[in-house]
């Protein structure tokens, strides 16, 4: 059954649809929250789903549920990482040959992400671990696609430095 169908059934108020939606997406929400915060946080996950319940009747594009859900999760995480997000963003670096992309691997990314600033951490998580497109990442983060690209480049570079620091040989 497609995500959109489950969401439409939820919007209709069908009793068994919401548990189905939760079972389908809960793991990804929990993983995103856990990796962004560097620890599991059930309260934040609950806050995300509470916002989903409240906002679901007004969701106009049920086929865009995924990005909408991650945007909600991002807001909940931002509330917890307010200080970290408040620090000024570094200037974008020139797009050079992206050697660092070669070292991006799911498990390695997951392990080293906690050392990265939240803006870079979130785009790496959304793009590489959640397999979302650049456009979708930009929509979730409420920034232009170009900003997402520069954050990805900077994030990969920082990630490579972090991995090298931890002894990983690229």
């Amino acid at each position: 059954m497609s995500d959109e169908l489950i969401v439409v059934r939820c919007q209709l108020g069908e009793r068994d649809a919401f548990p189905e939606l939760v079972r389908h997406w809960h793991g990804r929400v929990e993983r995103y929250v856990g990796r962004m915060l560097g620890r599991a946080d059930d309260d934040v996950v609950q806050e995300v789903w509470l916002a989903v319940v409240k906002g679901l009747p007004r969701l106009r594009q049920p086929d865009r549920f995924g990005p909408w859900l991650f945007a909600i999760a991002r807001r909940a995480v931002m509330n917890r990482l307010r200080d970290a997000y408040a620090s000024p963003e570094p200037l974008p670096v020139e797009d050079g040959p992206d050697e660092a992309a070669a070292v991006v691997d799911r498990e390695l990314v997951a392990g080293a992400l906690s050392a990265l600033p939240p803006r870079e951490r979130e785009v790496l998580l959304l793009f590489h671990l959640e397999d979302l497109s650049l456009d979708t990442c930009a929509q979730i983060c409420a920034v232009p696609v170009g900003t997402v690209k520069s954050r990805l480049n900077r994030g990969r570079r920082l990630l490579r430095e972090e991995l090298l620091r931890k002894g990983y040989e690229g």
Binding site: G13, H26, V45, Q46
Partner: peptide, 17 residues
């Protein structure tokens, strides 16, 4: 937290009655 735990926490918001 399992999906069932979460659904238990959201029980009040999901009650039709």
């Amino acid at each position: 937290m399992t999906p069932e735990d979460l659904l238990g926490r959201l029980d009040a918001q999901l009650s039709f009655r």
